[in-house]
Design a protein around this nucleic acid. Structure first.
Length: 609
DNA sequence: CTAGGGTTAG
């Protein structure tokens, strides 16, 4: 009878459905076996695996006689319920109340809690106890320790523990590979995988996703091809969502589409992780229509699905759609989280919905009990700045409970320039100067602000600082995606085989632009040089080259998609607005901070970025 | 009866 009950409980645990388990529990109570043999601990584990942590805790608390297995079970239950801090806080009661010593199962669970909490200090304490215990040679606890140290960034300690593991297996190696890969230690990660006798999908996934997290995207794709050549079967979707994320990071639409095809071919279209990354990928690859399609074809949507599309729409300047989807989300009964609100407030700032944005900020705190973070304040500030509510913006800046960095002050300064608030501009400029400036574009803003107020001494000071600190602008480059081909252009690049055609095209366009009222704005050029020279610099900015190339080589009438590493220059922004009108083409530029959809002479960012 | 590795939004 006892044996049969244990087996039934184990079955409930694997199916994850507690209803049969509850019936069994009732039966066990009725026949008085609830404290007999392995039954109480198995019940705890069954409830935990079915997601009913409270039932598990109640059983544990009410047990008259607990043993180390009970402790291992409850600690695992807390970890499983995403409450690793509870594990750490109740553990001392194992000594204090129950007078028990931890075994290797308990150690492994505790190490896992520390890994989840990134609690290196406590992790080291557990490690010390483990070393002094009679279980100190347990390999499984050691592989947990490897994982814990790796997750806390102590890769060399992780390796030292790894080297003491007597019989290394796929699991311990995978933990170490994952650590190296996430830490960007590419060659060590790859070498360890190559040395493994048995490689499986887990170890390859750890390697490839880890490298993607440390931004080695191209290497990751090469390794993925190699993995398939080795005949590793893709039996779950973990690696696919990682690769879709990598495509998003590269803004490589064609690559992302290929992974999407693979998803369909292998039958993982219903995986929520995959669906969510697809929405994000299409948005980041500037194909917001495909992002919407992916979102609507997600059957069971969670907060992340909704947030992904809301953020995507917001970044593409489609604020009304983002806000309307938020209403749909609320009516499904889902609760937004802090990321959702970043997207929403960001959306409001794009279309100047000041009151709506302010209400959302309030609603986040009052209705959902969320704490605004630096990003929320930055969005709120942006909302006020963009709409010309500069006093409110300055007020937010002075009262928000966060340290503010250079970029935030610079953004307010640029708003002052835009709305002609000279006096506030000087105040902000002085604050910015006091902060210590690193970004070259901040120097341009500062110099322009002081020049605008005829404060020539300050202008000279900024210039001098610039020379002393030797501000180096990261070289600007733009990629244009034409079907499967990608062409990269650097600012001032002169060696391209199609240079002449591109120059002729840009010259022709400039002539037409000047007829329509275009005047080059040389205030965006950093270096000291003559006006003609400055205009010449602007002419060869990488985003223009990329667009010219796209016009010459792309499919006529198609959308031109450009990705730039820096923020798009102000003069280029004006130029692209003219060009899209002249040639009647849509141009989408993803720059370092947002998307710009140029269409019919206008840009989706409303000229503020 | 209890323990170890790999995916998503800012």
């Amino acid at each position: 009878m006892h044996h049969h009950l244990l087996q039934s409980l184990r079955l409930c645990a694997t199916t994850g459905n507690p209803s049969h388990g509850k019936t069994l529990h009732a039966l066990i109570l009725k026949i008085g076996l609830d404290q007999y043999g392995a039954l109480p601990n198995t019940l705890i584990s069954m409830y935990a695996k079915c997601g009913l942590i409270n039932h598990a805790v109640q059983l544990f608390d009410e047990m008259p006689q607990r043993d180390p297995v009970s402790w291992a079970s409850i600690l695992t239950a807390y970890n499983r319920a995403n409450l690793p801090n509870r594990s750490i806080s109740i553990f001392p009661n194992m000594f204090v109340h129950d007078h028990l010593q931890p075994d290797h199962f308990v150690f492994a669970s505790l190490v896992n809690s520390c890994a989840a909490l990134n609690a290196l200090k406590i992790g080291r304490q557990v490690h010390a106890q483990f070393v002094m215990s009679r279980f100190s040679s347990d390999d499984i606890t050691k592989s947990s320790l490897v994982d814990m140290y790796a997750k806390c960034g102590s890769l060399d300690v992780a390796r030292a523990v790894f080297d003491t593991i007597r019989s290394k297996n796929t699991i311990s190696c995978t933990a170490m590979i994952s650590g190296y890969a996430k830490g960007g230690r590419k060659s060590e990660a790859i070498e360890l995988l190559k040395d493994m006798k048995v490689q499986n999908l887990f170890s390859w996934t750890a390697l490839i996703s880890g490298l993607i997290q440390s931004e080695h995207f191209i290497t990751a794709f090469h390794l993925f091809i190699q993995m398939q050549k080795e005949g590793i079967k893709i039996v779950d979707s973990f690696i696919l969502s990682s690769l879709i994320g990598a495509s998003a990071n590269l803004a490589a639409l064609e690559l992302g589409k290929q992974v999407h095809c693979l998803v369909s071919k292998l039958g993982f279209e219903s995986s929520l992780y995959v669906c969510n990354t697809l929405v994000d990928m299409y948005a980041k690859c500037s194909d917001i229509l495909a992002a919407k399609t992916a979102f609507h074809s997600t059957v069971k949507k969670d907060v992340i699905s909704w947030t992904s599309i809301i953020v995507g729409l917001a970044q593409h300047g489609k604020a009304e759609e983002a806000l309307s989807l938020y209403n749909d989300m609320i009516s499904t009964g889902l609760k937004p989280n802090e990321v959702t609100f970043v997207g929403l407030i960001y959306a409001c700032s794009h279309v100047g919905l000041v009151n709506k944005g302010r209400d959302l900020f309030k609603s986040m705190v009052d209705d959902y009990g969320l704490n605004p973070n630096l990003q929320h304040y930055t969005c709120l500030l942006d909302l006020y700045s963009r709409s010309g509510h500069l006093d409110e913006a300055e007020n937010v800046l002075n009262t928000m409970p966060f340290e503010v960095d250079e970029a935030v002050w610079a953004s307010l300064l640029s708003a002052c320039k835009r709305f002609g608030k000279t006096r506030m501009g000087i105040r902000v400029a002085n604050r910015l100067m006091g902060l210590g400036v690193k970004d070259p574009s901040s120097y341009i803003l500062l110099s322009n602000a002081y020049a605008g107020a005829s404060m020539w001494e300050s202008v000279a000071k900024v210039r001098k600082l610039m020379a002393v600190i030797d501000v180096k602008k990261e070289p600007g480059y733009s990629c244009v995606h034409l079907g499967k081909e990608t062409e990269v252009f650097y600012a001032g690049e002169t060696g391209h085989p199609m240079k002449n055609e591109m120059r002729v095209l840009l010259k022709d366009l400039e002539e037409e632009m000047r007829k329509r009222g275009y005047v080059p704005d040389v205030s965006f050029v950093l270096h000291d040089m003559g006006k003609q020279e400055k205009e010449n610099q602007l002419f060869w900015h990488s985003e223009r080259l990329a667009v010219a190339y796209g016009l010459l080589n792309g499919v006529p009438g198609s959308v031109i998609r450009v990705v730039k590493n820096l923020r798009v220059c102000g003069d280029c922004h004006t130029v692209l607005k003219f060009i899209c009108g002249i040639v009647g083409r849509e141009i989408v530029v993803r720059d370092a901070s947002r998307f710009h959809h140029f269409k019919d002479g206008k840009c989706s960012c409303s000229d503020f970025w």
